[in-house]
Nucleic acid binder design. Sequence first.
DNA 1: AGGGACTTTCTCATATTTCGAATGATGATA
DNA 2: TATCATCATTCGAAATATGAGAAAGTCCCT
Lengths: 309, 309
Amino acid sequence: MRLEDLRFFTRVAALGNLSAAGREFGLSPSAASSRLTSLERELAVQLFARTTRSLVLTEAGQVLLDHAGIALAQMDAAFEQLEAVNAAPSGVLRISSNMFFGRKHVLPHLGEFREFYPDLRIAIDCTDRIVDIIGEGYDMAIRGAPMPDSSLMARRLGSDQRVLCASPAYIERKGQPRSPSDLINHDCIGVEAMPIWYFDGPDGEIVHRVAYSIHGDSGDFSYDATLHGLGLSVKSISHVWEELRDGRLVSVMNDYPIARTGDICAVYPPGKYTSPKVSAFIDFLQSKYGRPPYWDTDYRISVPVSDLD
Amino acid sequence: MRLEDLRFFTRVAALGNLSAAGREFGLSPSAASSRLTSLERELAVQLFARTTRSLVLTEAGQVLLDHAGIALAQMDAAFEQLEAVNAAPSGVLRISSNMFFGRKHVLPHLGEFREFYPDLRIAIDCTDRIVDIIGEGYDMAIRGAPMPDSSLMARRLGSDQRVLCASPAYIERKGQPRSPSDLINHDCIGVEAMPIWYFDGPDGEIVHRVAYSIHGDSGDFSYDATLHGLGLSVKSISHVWEELRDGRLVSVMNDYPIARTGDICAVYPPGKYTSPKVSAFIDFLQSKYGRPPYWDTDYRISVPVSDLD
DNA sequence: AGGGACTTTCTCATATTTCGAATGATGATA
DNA sequence: TATCATCATTCGAAATATGAGAAAGTCCCT
């Protein structure tokens, strides 16, 4: 039984005329008759007492009409609300972001975003844990790189190179690594989840399995540790661009740039119909991180490595 | 959009499992997936965030679920009520009957009928006017004979011959007609709606166009007039059987019985699904008027015409 | 008495739905 | 850590349902 059939039935009841109701629905008289007949067959009830020229509700028809009217009104309300959900971003946008990026690059723009969409509330969780977007009910996440074999959708927000960096004090003490093989003599800092560093060498990708001297559970931890001169770490430009610019950190081993990186992405559940609030926020972030992002300084020349060597 | 699809959607939402919901509805996984997809396409909304192994409601899905739940409950109530209407005769049974038959042969049995179906109330209008059953909202009518070319349904309740009769006093005064051609010398009584009498003669049907000496607008009027010896009239056995039995009236011209009569019928609106209250009442009346009806005495020998001649 | 409008039935063409098998992905289990 | 079972989706083919058009029967109105 289709909603449309019920709606048609209510119209027939109101008009008392099958053909007229059929015309309203763009139906031929035969189709109209057939719809009504099949409705009666499905319910095994006579809905109308029929003359060859008109129809009068039976008691059963009246019963159905009463209930169908309420049910259809309910569904109309649903459609209206769905349209509202779909037309204008509203409700709550639940975002997951890693700790630093959320605090430093998302939060500062939220005020402006909310000016565009006052009806849309933001719930942002900043954690370096890899969250289950679908299972935990997030609308989207902002990630340094999309999960390689995930069925999630991903959209690139902007470039975000990663660099191997250290504090000037550390370089002064331990010297500068020239190639990945030198790393064995250095203190490496990172997070548990990233035990392998990939470099682009002149002869292709170089895989370095890292034995961390120190590791924590967040990007902020490795950031702090690096800044304190505890060793080398791989950081996103978006995280350390100010430190590189100011010379508090320096990038090293620039002949071997970090491979397999380069983008900051929005990740969201798959499906043909992305909710407009997600689309709106992604569009907004793209406008902020658009080419080039404001953090995309040339870190290699900001503090020439040669000066430190 | 089908009600069944909405119901399916609510089940999927409850189970969080498309295949399981599909099994409940006897659907293959592919059909289940297709249903959900087409629902989303129709609404242009993502209803579930999908993992390859499970589904989680989106905000839009939650909106739909809330409303669909109410709407479906409403429709379930409708179905339940329709089933009740259909299963047990209840509500009001609106009957039209001619004046005498209703009073004399329907009313006396209503008490017994109501013992069978206490929930069913009876509204009976006794009138000799030919009512528009459908237009005036009757469930059924009891008629001496079904309309010849009507689309109404008719069911025979019992036999009810009609006879040409008069009072003994009238016969004594005017003599007894022997054949239809004698009628021209007699006073004929009837109602406006029946200007023609049909007789079965030995050589086939004889049509007699009646010039009423007296006519009224009801069967009761012609009954009274006949009883008062004002003339001849055609009456149903069910109307005058007691008078014939007691000799207050006598049937005349028995060699030419009234043609085109013989049945008392229930008439009701056409349709594949007759309401149970109508069926119940018709069945009940058939049991009362069943072969032979209690009024079906042999009127020809109750008061032999020869005695009067 | 006649014309127009209505409902219904029939047949046939078209959409839609469904299943079965194959694919890709995930969680549980050993 | 690897295997297995389960899940959702896609594709093609068959089954089903839906729709229009023509024709018939009925009834109202002029």
